[in-house]
């Protein structure tokens, strides 16, 4: 295996996971969210109808209106395309920001 291929392959796998496989992820509440909902009852629209639980105290996100909020792209109606493109954007942004900062912060061998 050529050494350079690793980077392309790694990024490609991340893009496919976030861009395609993400559409097949479970939409059930995750462990934390499930614990937060414990003690309350919910109606068909997922609104709290009674009881006491942590989720009652949840406040809206300050940046909830962001164009990528909730892993979708605002304005794209097809849910698969919206989630997929948001995932691809997230991977590229994370790689660019993370990789960029780590590169800037790296230890120079000859300084």
């Amino acid at each position: 295996m050529k050494k350079k291929w690793f980077w392309f392959a790694g990024l490609f796998v991340a893009l496919v996971l976030a861009g395609v496989v993400s559409n097949f992820a479970s939409s059930s509440p995750d462990g934390l969210d499930a614990a937060a909902r414990q003690g309350c009852t919910f109606n068909a629209d997922d609104e709290i109808t009674g009881g006491t639980c942590m989720a009652q105290q949840e406040k809206d996100h300050q940046l909830g209106g962001s164009p990528l909020a909730d892993y979708g792209i605002k304005g794209i109606d097809n849910p698969y395309v919206s989630t997929g493109l948001a995932g691809v954007a997230g991977v590229l942004i994370t790689f660019a920001i993370g990789g960029g900062l780590f590169w800037v912060a790296r230890r120079r061998t000859h300084v």
Binding site: L11, V13, A14, L17, S26, D30, V91, T94, G98, R106
Partner: peptide, 20 residues
């Protein structure tokens, strides 16, 4: 390590979208 760290961050972002 620097580019690997960028790739690891991107990979974790991707896999965090995959709720099982």
């Amino acid at each position: 390590l620097a580019p690997m760290a960028g790739l690891v961050a991107a990979f974790i972002f991707a896999v965090q979208m995959l709720n099982f």
